[in-house]
Design a binder for these strands. Structure first.
Length: 491
RNA sequence: CGGGAGGUAGUUCAGCCCGGUAGAAUACCUGGUUUGGGACCAGGGGGUCGCAGGUUCGAAUCCUGUCCUCCCGACCA
């Protein structure tokens, strides 16, 4: 299979699709807007999920599971929330099919209409807060620190593999607290967890910030986010953490008795990351040869390819490889010996590059004589011939170097694509020619934000946390501003 | 949801305008030779032409509907 990948320069969108499809991460399905996550893609997701899950547990959270279906009436209890999601909800209206009396398969049984329609969850705040009402009486029941791993459905008009699909996998944390301060601390803590995960595990640098009112989650008081930058200069919201105030407690009447035996509404947070992270991972690192996966979450970290003349030599190579494999496995390295006979070495090299395996080791006749192996790293596409002595330890270190190098490269790109501008002309030029984040003063009004979006398609990605306070003038209106915000075109 | 393009072998595509036994490359299977960057020879298997109707003696080809995908736009944690 000659898997020619469209170059980034030629067509960035097609390049992305090619990587996902030909890299074996996912396929389109027979259902509009829904994808099949293939084993290789799912293995990647499992590695991400498992690490996130460990981090949630370390910060005191426990997992639970709530229903896929939400009674329609629940969704309308919080006004902003319903407005935010109403336009993209799948609705279950019937519970039975029957044979078509006119032939031609099955039809919906009109007699099996539900009394109250069920909504396929677009997010679970409502069903969870309806449940928390029963769980919470006293301050002694708080905090509740629950996470759930689930699928959700948002009926998107235009979908893209991993980045925006009608159904996607995610985790959603939903916590309940006695005080606003504690809930805000939780919101910020989970934002830090996301940032740490993105940077240390995905090797994707992110900017932590807070969303403007326009970009805020429907039903939240404050939405915090991590924003990443893709290689085409567009930003990607990689994770969000919301301080929900008492909005859902009030909507679902969730009160607790404090130490003074007074009834108070509970304070809430919610936070989530999804399979969208995979899209971001792909677009942050990969090149025209294929995927480049960071070692910490790559399904396969090392692949070993034998290059042999005759079966006898193959056996000799295999003997060496078996020793190396067990040494690598002892160091916790995910390694595969690709000794299949249906492809020659060159084909295998290209295939593993396409799939983004961080390290490739080739061992041939010359290596047998010299006691060496050829080690190729995917991130820099360099090769080196190294001694077999101490090779496993070297590879172990190399994986760590690759992880760091990938982060450094992505960070250098990101940092060089944050442009400070002070005039409208500079603002427009930076967006059009360079892309990336544009750091500019903004007068703080939703109207100005909207107008800038209409004129340039750029949105305010976030107001960075710990933002430098600086007097300036709004790049559009010239009105006074106290700090810069980050604009960008976004996914 | 609007505009444009597309759906034929596992994959990439030709055939369609002008209706008449469904093709190529590659992948796959068998045997052999090979193996340091996508091998070669010989033989072989594989497609209700997205799906459903219609026109016709006859439809991959013409007509209608419908589903899925891509690109652009509107929308959008």
């Amino acid at each position: 299979m000659a898997a020619a990948i469209t170059s980034r320069e030629q067509d960035y969108s097609q390049w992305y699709n090619d990587l996902i499809l030909k890299g074996g991460l996912a396929d389109y399905s027979a259902v509009r807007g829904c994808m099949v996550i293939k084993p290789y893609g799912f293995a990647l997701w499992e590695n991400m999920r498992d690490q996130l899950d460990r981090m949630f547990k370390e910060t005191g959270h426990v997992n639970a599971y709530f229903p896929l279906f939400i009674p329609k009436s629940f969704l309308s209890k919080e006004a902003a929330h319903v407005e935010g999601f109403a336009k993209e909800c799948a609705v279950v209206t019937h519970y039975r099919l029957k044979n078509d009396p006119n032939g031609g398969g099955v039809v919906v049984d009109p007699e099996a209409k539900l009394e109250e329609e069920l909504i396929v969850r677009p997010t679970s705040e409502t069903i969870i807060w309806n449940t928390y009402k029963d769980w919470i009486q006293s301050y002694r029941d708080l905090p509740i620190l629950v996470n759930q791993w689930a699928n959700v459905v948002r009926w998107e008009m235009r979908t893209r593999l991993f980045l925006r699909t009608a159904e996607f996998l995610w985790q959603e944390g939903h916590t309940a607290h006695a005080t606003a301060q504690e809930a805000v601390e939780e919101t910020r803590k989970m934002l830090d967890v996301y940032a740490q995960f993105a940077e240390e595990w995905m090797a994707v640098p992110v900017i932590k910030g807070v969303k403007t009112a326009n970009e805020r989650f429907a039903g939240a008081e404050d939405t915090y986010c991590i924003e990443a930058l893709m290689q085409d200069g567009k930003a990607l919201q990689a994770g969000t953490s919301h301080f929900l105030g008492q909005n859902f407690a009030k909507a679902f009447d969730v009160k607790f008795s404090n130490k003074e035996n007074e009834l108070e509404y509970v304070w809430a947070t919610s936070w989530g990351v999804s399979t969208r992270l995979i899209g971001g991972l792909v677009m942050a690192h990969s090149d025209d040869q294929g995927l480049i996966l960071p070692p910490k979450i790559a399904p396969l970290q090392v692949v070993i390819v034998p290059i042999h003349k005759g079966e006898e030599q193959l056996n000799a190579i295999t003997e060496k490889v078996n020793v190396l494999m067990s040494e690598l496995k002892a160091l916790g390295v995910r390694v595969k010996y690709d000794n299949s006979d249906n492809a020659r070495p060159g084909w295998k090299f290209a295939e593993h590059e396409l799939k983004g395996v961080p390290v490739r080791i080739a061992i041939g006749g010359r290596d047998l004589e010299n006691g060496t192996a050829e080690v190729a790293r995917r991130d820099e596409k360099t090769k080196a011939t190294l001694s077999m002595d101490g090779l496993a330890q070297h590879i172990h270190q190399l994986l760590s170097d690759i992880q760091q190098n990938m982060f450094n490269k992505a960070k250098a790109y990101r940092d060089s694509h944050i442009t400070k501008v002070d005039t409208w002309e500079e603002f427009v030029e930076a967006l059009e020619t360079k892309g990336g984040f544009v750091s500019a003063h903004w007068d703080g009004t939703a109207e100005t934000e909207e107008e800038i979006k209409t004129k340039t398609k750029a949105t305010i990605r976030c107001i960075p946390l710990n933002n430098e306070q600086e007097e300036g003038k709004c790049v559009l209106t010239g009105k006074p501003s106290k700090e810069r915000v980050l604009f960008a075109l976004a996914y």
